[in-house]
Design a binder for these strands. Structure first.
Lengths: 361, 361
DNA sequence: CAACGTCGCTAAACTGATTTAGCAGAGCAT
DNA sequence: ATGCTCTGCTAAATCAGTTTAGCGACGTTG
């Protein structure tokens, strides 16, 4: 791997100058008094030899490696990681940096290993990422250098990039209100630990706050709230079934994430209800399934790529201390419609009777 | 990042020995005649100072970095990447190596950048990964060092790790045969380019070969084959609808991947058919949705984690030239059952009539 | 008793860059 | 003629390790 590469000494020799001169020219140092001709000769020589500096040698001297560490709990191996890494990768490349990826898997020994590996390699900075938006504790060992938290916050006042879940909640509530939903908006995915413990999730509480705040501003309260022990399809399924067992039916269901929404689709389908004609569904995340469902699920996307990008920007662009709350764009698909024109009308037989052919999913 | 770390010179001084001695002891060099006592003193000193070698300095001299590059087309940012990276990460850690991740996005300029970054950093080896199992061309620049292909092959005779799609196809066919399916096994996901062009996919052809071979050995041929332009849910959906429009109905559907299967579930659900009572469904990949579907989808899992692991083993374990075809375990869920007892019986009315409540999904 | 071998260890070179300190020569003023 | 500044450039130190070559003391052998 990389034998016989031209060294700086080779370039200098060919240009008929010293290593010092070559180094200064190639690094574009200001204030050197090297002649224009010397510049030309060095550039030409470097070009001809295909010179590329040896990173190890350079960083030995400068303590810079043009490498940033991407440390995560388990994010690197989940589908959520994709965008995060891609965004970071792109932004890093634009700044001529490279990404070293490690995973702690929430294991102290692994974390220790990851940190040592990082320190040994003198990375220029660390992106510390969490799979679920949450508060975490950053190991002290990496606090000597620049650190940016991704999808997480900590008590250390570190720069941190987060999705704007509260705004997304508001947007979702507004979307339903705008379509005419008011008194029969249900929500599934309430979950005490997620809402209360910031070490588990910051998203749940923020989403809820956004939803409630907006509804309240319109003088509306949630029609029903379904609790779920986890945010998985099966829980969305049972929560939705419970919802449908009530005497009155919601006109719209807000799901705390797309996997719950998937479960809701399943339950609605089995109940013979059509989305969005009978019930609208809207959600958070923009998981790939959201576009695979029939009808497509409207959902506030977690802007993974932007977030990864932003993390690198905050880490590397020294004067950048811009906003780190990244907006979550609403992907409008077909799962939201106006409520069936019956809120003011008496309910008819057929409304509560499952149709013979289930449409959704 | 990493100021005031103890250096080898510090350790040597504290042990009252030379840098040479310290270096040799810490690297466990055989054949040095350093006394047992000298060994002890060095180890003690290193321990007390919390000494960790500077990787840049070491690799400057040795040209080894304990870093391996994970280069992919777009694999690093898809859900398929997770396991691949995790497996590689784990195996790398066990061997005290670290992963540098880059992505070419299929773009020549990006690939060039990635290669230079890798060469500049003198990585010890390269894992070149593809998102879809396929044949590709490895840039010559990295052929100077060790390279392992992951989920890909090339014409260069490089070691390459692949899932055993043909065996998986055979397993799936066997599973259906064992349940009693014979003459009404349909398949969806035929796709000429995928099957014919190894630069697009190696999986399609291998899976098909496995399925056909096994069925043929049992004296059976596929009952119907549905073509799809892509392997996405919508294509599975239409292919399944087409299948259901035929005069006779299949007893089982093999889907070339889980996303197609998801589309099949949707179509079957809408048609009022129950999985697996009316029709069994089986598939490839073990995408997360496979376990979210109702009933759970039986599918041959792509062993991402094993594959990533295997790639690192082949790269780093010099004497390892073991098999690089990784078996795809069948995840048995509830989507496969014996065919409805009607193959030998005359068909009844109800068999072709959708039920009033759709169960699947 | 000199030559030789082994033992236990070290000085110094080396890797490939950056950076500090400073030198030779030209031009100018005194 | 001397001193000064400025210009254009370079020698050598430095970063933190690994590796080569070899040194002094001691014991053995002919």
């Amino acid at each position: 791997m990389g034998r016989n590469r031209a060294t700086l000494a080779d370039v200098a020799r060919r240009a008929g100058l010293s290593k010092t001169a070559a180094s200064m020219v190639l690094n574009g140092r200001e204030g050197t008094r090297l002649s224009a001709e010397a510049h030309q000769r060095v550039f030409a020589a470097a070009e001809e030899l295909g010179y590329r500096p040896n990173v190890a040698a350079r960083s030995l001297r400068t303590r810079k490696t043009a490498t940033i560490a991407f440390v995560s709990d388990i994010v690197a191996t989940t589908r959520f990681a994709g965008g995060l890494i891609r965004g970071a990768l792109d932004a890093a490349r634009e700044r001529d940096h490279v990404l070293l990826i490690t995973e702690t898997q929430g294991d102290a020994a692994f974390e220790q290993y990851a940190i040592e590996a990082i320190l040994d390699r003198q990375v220029d900075g660390v992106i510390y990422a969490a799979m679920a938006t949450r508060r975490l504790t950053v190991p002290k060992a990496i606090l000597n250098g620049p650190v940016v938290l991704l999808n997480a916050t900590s008590s250390e006042e570190l720069p941190s990039v987060l999705p704007d879940d509260e705004l997304a909640g508001a947007t979702i509530a507004e979307t339903l209100l705008a379509r005419g939903h008011r008194d029969r908006i249900a929500l599934i995915g309430r979950n005490r630990p997620k809402e209360r413990d910031p070490e588990i999730s910051l998203a749940a509480e923020a989403r809820l706050r956004g939803i409630r705040g907006t509804l309240a501003a319109a003088g509306v309260a949630l029609f029903a709230e379904g609790f779920c022990t986890e945010w998985l399809p099966e829980h969305g399924y049972t929560a939705t079934q419970a919802l449908l067992g009530r005497p009155d039916r919601p006109s719209a269901i807000i799901c705390m994430n797309d996997r719950l929404a998937f479960g809701a689709y399943q339950a609605l389908g089995e109940a013979g209800l059509t989305i969005p004609d009978d019930i609208s569904v809207i959600s958070f995340d923009d998981d790939p399934i959201a576009s695979w469902l029939r009808p497509g699920l409207s959902t506030a996307a977690i802007p993974h790529e932007q977030m990864g990008r932003r993390a690198v920007e905050l880490l590397l662009d020294k004067d950048d201390s811009g906003p780190a709350l990244v907006p979550m764009p609403l992907r409008r698909r077909r799962s939201v419609a106006a409520p069936a024109a019956r809120t003011p009308l008496p309910r008819t037989e057929s409304d509560s009777t499952p149709r013979s052919r289930a449409k959704p999913i």
